[in-house]
Amino acid sequence: MQIFVKTLTGKTITLEVEPSDTIENVKAKIQDKEGIPPDQQRSIFAGKQLEDGRTLSDYNIQKESTLHLVLR
């Protein structure tokens, strides 16, 4: 499925993911596309910070959902 990741600069990245993917996985995909190390990424969805060990389905993130990426 496709999800979108919006950065603070307003750029939107499209990722191909599975509901079973962990947040860690997703951060690795963002690193592949953007070169941002996962330890600098904070992902926010529906106002909640997403934890690395959880999966997209844990957070009820579905296709075409938009995550927000904040850098630390």
Rank of each mutant, 00 (worst) to 15 (best):
T55F: 04
Q49M: 14
D52Q: 04
P38Q: 12
R72P: 11
K6S: 06
P37E: 08
G35K: 06
R42L: 15
L8K: 07
S57Q: 13
K27I: 12
G10Y: 03
Q40R: 11
I13D: 00
I3T: 00
M1E: 02
T7E: 04
N25I: 14
T9K: 11
D21L: 05
L8H: 14
Q2Y: 13
K48C: 11
K29P: 01
N60M: 06
S65E: 08
G35M: 05
T66L: 09
E34H: 11
A28V: 10
R54Q: 08
E16G: 05
F45P: 04
T55H: 05
L50F: 03
K29C: 03
T66M: 08
Q41A: 10
T55Y: 04
T9G: 13
Q2H: 12
L67T: 00
D39L: 10
L15H: 00
N60F: 07
S65I: 04
T9F: 13
I61T: 01
K27Q: 04
G35Y: 04
Q40K: 12
R54V: 06
T14F: 07
D58W: 10
E51C: 10
M1Q: 00
R42W: 15
I23C: 02
T9H: 12
V70S: 07
S57K: 12
L56T: 01
G53W: 14
Q41W: 15
D32R: 11
S20A: 07
Q40S: 10
T9S: 13
T22N: 03
G10P: 00
E51S: 06
T7A: 04
D58N: 03
E24W: 15
E64T: 04
Q2F: 13
I61C: 03
G47T: 05
Q62S: 10
E64C: 10
F4W: 05
L69K: 02
L56K: 00
D39M: 08
S65C: 03
Q41N: 07
R42I: 15
L67E: 01
I30L: 07
E24M: 12
Q41S: 09
T22H: 02
H68E: 12
V70A: 08
N60L: 05
N25S: 14
K11T: 09
I44E: 08
K48E: 13
L8G: 10
T7D: 06
Y59I: 03
V70G: 06
N60I: 03
V26S: 00
G47P: 05
D52C: 06
V17P: 00
K6W: 05
S43E: 10
L8M: 13
F4Q: 04
G47Q: 05
G35T: 03
R42D: 13
V17N: 00
Q49W: 15
R54M: 12
K29M: 12
T9M: 11
V5R: 00
Q31V: 07
G47N: 07
I3P: 00
I23L: 08
M1R: 03
E24F: 14
M1W: 07
K11H: 10
P19T: 08
F45K: 04
S43N: 12
I13P: 00
P38A: 14
T55W: 03
V26C: 02
A46P: 05
G35P: 05
H68D: 08
R42Q: 14
K6R: 11
R54E: 03
I3F: 01
R42A: 14
D52A: 06
R54G: 06
Q31G: 09
R42C: 15
E18P: 02
Q41Y: 15
T7Q: 05
V26D: 01
E51Y: 06
D58M: 03
K11L: 09
L8R: 10
E34K: 05
G47M: 04
S57G: 09
I30N: 01
Q2M: 12
I44G: 04
V70Y: 11
L56V: 06
Y59C: 02
I36C: 07
V17M: 03
D58T: 03
L71D: 08
K33M: 13
N25M: 15
L69F: 05
L50C: 04
E24I: 09
T12I: 14
G35R: 05
T9N: 12
V70K: 07
S43P: 15
T55V: 05
L50A: 01
T55S: 09
V17W: 03
I3N: 02
P19E: 07
I30C: 02
V26Y: 04
I30Q: 01
G53I: 06
N60H: 09
Q49A: 12
I36H: 08
T55K: 10
G10N: 05
E51R: 07
T12Q: 06
S65W: 04
D39F: 09
K29Y: 07
K33D: 07
Q2E: 09
I61E: 02
D39W: 14
E18D: 12
F45E: 04
V5G: 01
T9E: 12
R54D: 04
V70H: 08
Y59A: 03
S20K: 07
Y59F: 04
I13S: 00
G47D: 09
A46L: 12
D21C: 04
D39H: 12
K63T: 12
L8P: 14
R54L: 11
L56S: 00
I13C: 02
K33P: 07
R54N: 09
D52E: 09
T14Q: 08
T7R: 04
